[in-house]
């Protein structure tokens, strides 16, 4: 006698597949934001589950800051090829050259510069919807995000004026120039993501696992030694056994000292963790409202 019972991962999976198919049904030109990070790796598997045996109905889009970990870009390109998906990469470098993005004087971080590059790519390809891997458990501002997050013609999010989202009925109607961001992983936690990676036997970039790396102590965190902001003479540099928990740019991604060699180790580590995932991201620590401000301006 079958039990007709879904466990929590199966529930999250069917919810996400339903949302993916609503996107395919309601939008003319959707794109899927794929960075090669763990959340977007899950997103790709869910797209396969939603649309196979057909080809994926969306191209993959990535905004490359030029400060990515090389391991991440290598993985991104390889995975897109494996899936036979079309991968579109737009770079901050190129956007600066074309005058689409202007770096603030003295600012090395390109976090803010991703916004105009993404918006320009949306305009270039006339994307009406971008599927992203953001999760509500990541951060306080994201906790208020809808599955279907409406953006006006400037790409802005207005948290006080979101469309109510009731049952599983998503309102995808847009006027010209407007845009939707869709987040099928909204209800997933960091633990769910890793349990899903395990269940689906998904490959992830090597930097998620323990490896030796030179690290520099900066603002209470270990950051990878890199050429963009080389260690200053007064900064401590050490060779450590580390992994990354969340991947941002190479200048802002905190390294976690960890012996985790496989997905099981990572799951055990998260179960015992005493800080959140984004506790290792310098870009979120800037101020209490850092993420809120970036989202309002058009960030993922």
């Amino acid at each position: 006698m079958p039990s007709y019972h879904l466990d929590h991962l199966q529930h999250l999976e069917t919810e996400a597949i339903h949302i993916m198919r609503e996107v395919a049904g309601e939008f003319e030109r959707p794109a899927l934001l794929f960075s090669g990070g763990k959340d977007s790796i899950c997103l790709l598997r869910l797209a396969e589950k939603a649309f196979r045996p057909s080809d994926l109905p969306t191209p993959l889009l990535n905004v490359d800051t030029g400060h990515h970990f090389p391991e991440l870009n290598e993985f991104r390109d390889r995975r897109a090829k494996q899936l036979g998906a079309k991968l579109i990469v737009r770079t901050v470098e190129d956007a600066i050259a074309k005058g689409i993005a202007q770096p603030a004087p003295g600012e090395i971080s390109r976090n803010q510069l991703q916004i105009p590059v993404l918006l320009a790519a949306i305009e270039e390809f006339r994307f009406d919807c971008c599927i992203g891997g953001a999760r509500r458990d990541e951060e306080k501002a994201r906790a208020k995000e809808r599955f279907f997050s409406f953006r006006d013609s400037f790409g802005q999010w207005d948290p006080k004026n979101q469309r109510p989202e009731i049952w599983n009925l998503y309102n995808g109607r847009l006027n010209p120039g407007e845009n939707m961001r869709v987040f099928p992983l909204s209800n997933w936690t960091e633990m769910d993501v890793w349990e899903y990676i395990k269940r689906e036997k998904l490959e992830v970039p090597s930097i998620y696992f323990s490896h030796r790396r030179s690290a520099v102590r900066r603002a209470g965190q270990w950051l990878p030694v890199n050429d963009l902001i080389p260690p200053r003479p007064n900064e401590e540099v050490r060779e450590l056994t580390v992994r990354v928990r969340t991947i941002g740019d190479i200048i802002s991604t905190g390294l976690v000292e960890s012996p985790a060699e496989d997905v099981d180790d990572i799951i055990a580590e998260i179960a015992a963790a005493r800080v959140t995932e984004r506790g290792s991201r310098a870009d979120d620590k800037a101020s209490e409202a850092a993420m809120e401000d970036r989202k309002k301006a058009g960030y993922f």
């Binding site: 458990d137 306080k140 501002a141 906790a143 208020k144 948290p159 006080k160 979101q162 209490e288 809120e292």
Partner: peptide
């Protein structure tokens, strides 16, 4: 979660935890 809420001491939208 949002600055406006902290300033006004109210919750202005659905937050998920």
């Amino acid at each position: 979660g949002l600055r406006a809420e902290r300033e006004q001491g109210i919750t202005i939208d659905v937050a998920y935890r």
